[in-house]
Every structure is written in C-alpha cells, then in structure tokens.
Simulated assay, not measured.
Amino acid sequence: MREAWRWFGPNDPVSIADIRQTGATDIVSALHAIQTGEVWPLDKIRAHKVLIEKDNRAQSSLVWSVVESIPVHEDIKLGLENIQGYIDAWITSMENLAKCGIKTICYNFMPVLDWTRTDLKFQLPNGGFALRFDQQKFAAFDLFILQRENAEADYSAEEFAQAKQIFLEMPEDEKALLTKNIIAGLPGKMTDSYEIDDFRRMLEKYKNVTKDILRKNLFSFLSQVLPRAEQLGVKLAIHPDDPPRDMLGLPRIICTSDDLDLLFSALPSPSNGITLCAGTYGSRPDNDLPRMARVFGSRIHFAHLRGVSRDKNEQRSFYEADHLSSDVDMVGIISALLKEEQLRDVATNPQGIFIRPDHGHQILDDINKLANPGYSCIGRLKGLAEIRGVIKALSTPH
C-alpha cells in the first residue's frame, strides 16, 4: 500500500518538510483556491505539483498522487438545466491532472454540506482533543437555531424534547459556535461557506429532491465523466456521505453497501470506484467494514483509515477515536486490503492502494498550535504509525 498524507497547500500549518519526516511517500491535495465549477488550469496544477516535489532530489521523495477533491457544482447535484459547462469543466480539470500524472481522484456528491461535525475540539479523558458528532446537539441546531421548515417531522417527541432542553441550556456563544461548526465551513473543505440565511435558501432548493432524483443526477454526471476517465487511465473514488444518513431534509445516497451495489450495477466502468473511508462508513452500525473491503476490493482506489466510537445509547452520535481502538475493525480492513492488492495485476496497478491516516487527535505540542480540525500533525503521525505496524505484522511471514 502507498502511504499518503493530506496537504492543504502553502497555508497548511503542517509543511511539506514536516510530512517528509512522517515517512509518507505520497501527497493527497487539491487546488482549494479555485471556485467550484471552474477549470483547474494546467499551469496551476503544475505549480502546485512543484511545491510538493521540488526538493525530491535532495531529500526523501514525495509525489502528488491523489486529488481530494475536485468539487462537484451544486447545480449538477440538483440536476438543473444549463449544467453542461460545469460538467465539461470537471472533465477538463481531470484531463489536466492526468497530463501531470495524477490519476486518482477522490470526490463526493453530498448536497449542500461536506463532512459535518458538531464539536471540533471534543476533549478526551487523556486530555487530547477529537472531532465529534453529537446527534442531540445537531437536533437542537436543526429545530431551534436553523428552524428548518417541518424539521419536527424528522424527530420523535422524546428527541424533540431533548433537543429543546439542550437549546434552552446552551449559552449564546455555544449556539454561535455550533452554527459555525455545522455550516460556516471547515478549513480545507471544498464547498463554500454559508451564512444561516444562505444556508436556508440552499436547503430550500433541495425541497423536492428525493434519493432517487439525486442518484439519477449522480449517474448522469458519471455517465459523461467515466468514458473519458477510462481513456485517461484515471480512477475515480467517490467518498461516502459524512455522516452517512439523511439529515436536514437532504437525501444521502452513498452510505451503505446497498448504495454501492446500485452505483456499480448502473455504471460498471473500471474507473468507477470508491474511497473506503473507514470512519465514515463505520459511524453506521449496519456497515460491516471488513466485509465491504472484501466485496468492493477491486473498486477501492483510495482508503481513509480512521476509527470512530459510537455512543452506546445514541448510535448516531460518535467521536473520532484512536485508529486502532474504536468500533471499526481496522485490522480486518487492512487485512482485506492487503489481500486485494495480492489479487491485482501488477502491470496495471503497480502502485497498490493509496491509504492515509485520517482525522488524528490534537495531542501533545499540537494542542496549542494552529491546526485544521482533524488534521494536526502528531495525531495523524500516531495513526500512521499504528496503521504501518498492522501492515507490517500482517505482511510478515510467520
């Protein structure tokens, strides 16, 4: 497997020099400054690649190998008219990346929001900090801060009462922080930030968009993208919806094994694949991650390896746990990925599966440093070391 590390560009607090010290060999990155729907110009891709690889002769080598992500314009997800220009721009960006040798592209089809958390600094018993999704806080936001139309229909009477109590006891600064965490944008995310009125308007656009409609729009988009991806030798790796379930009245369509079966039955192209995000899929108790890694092994072009621990009494709530100590069977997943690599044709898949540690804890010296939520250095390095140890143990003959 190829050990990769996500880098958000020159403004990332974790520098390329830092990443070299982790032992990772590949970089996962994107052109975050380019607006959604615009072409990624060839010269800007090359310039970003130079930033990553310019010192490779003098120091340990790093290669920009994976894109995360080329964002899909919201109008494509909505299936509006006159979206051909956005689809063409996405394809042109893919072509320009392929010209630079970058042929693994992670993307998602989440409506309105990218990955969502209620707490960006949830303190753990050991003093470190993790990301957390709290279903009751989220309900309080949905029902009483956002005041989404007909939101109460999505909650039981007990859930409504709990959310109301949480809202009433929440200080104003905590309400503002909760709102910011959910809708105002996370560093490095590939969607625009929202003010709450703009957010309401975006949700309104999806009022009549069902799962079937959103899935149809995804398939329509891919039906144009995949033939060109095949010609270029590009592998597309769709990321699951995070959290993987309907929320805020929005449909979610990449959440379970059944969703992936539908995707691959409709579009069997070898370029049509997935990002196996263990933490995202693992936040649903009905997702069996080792089994998914076995069943969809040939479709896995990229893997995010992290764990989550779900609350015992509210399985929709979770925090991001240690990479090897969570509700996710990380050893089972890695074992399945290693077996999949053994099955692959070395001539057509020489590099193996790209993996990266994901959403590490903020610990030690990083607690007092500026860091993108989930992307501090030491916590991810700890996760990478643990993953590396599992790979070594499983790969060593006994």
Rank of each mutant, 00 (worst) to 15 (best):
F160D: 00
A163Y: 05
A163W: 07
K164M: 13
I166D: 00
I166P: 00
F167A: 06
F167E: 01
F167N: 09
E169P: 01
E169A: 15
E169L: 10
P171K: 10
E172S: 14
E172I: 14
E172T: 12
D173S: 12
L177T: 15
L178A: 09
L178R: 10
N181R: 09
I182V: 11
I182H: 08
I183R: 10
I183Y: 10
G185D: 00
G185H: 03
G185A: 02
L186P: 00
L186N: 08
P187M: 04
K189W: 10
K189T: 10
M190R: 12
T191L: 05
D192M: 09
D192E: 11
Y194R: 07
E195I: 05
E195N: 12
E195Q: 14
I196N: 03
I196D: 08
D198Y: 05
F199A: 01
F199N: 06
R201W: 02
R201P: 00
M202P: 00
M202V: 06
L203I: 12
E204Q: 14
E204R: 13
K205T: 11
Y206T: 04
N208Q: 12
T210H: 02
T210V: 03
T210K: 02
D212F: 00
R215C: 04
K216D: 13
K216F: 09
F219R: 02
F219H: 14
F219Y: 15
S220W: 09
S220I: 02
F221P: 08
S223C: 03
S223D: 14
Q224S: 11
Q224F: 06
V225D: 01
L226K: 06
P227V: 05
R228S: 01
R228K: 15
A229D: 07
Q231Y: 03
Q231G: 05
L232A: 07
G233C: 04
V234C: 06
K235E: 10
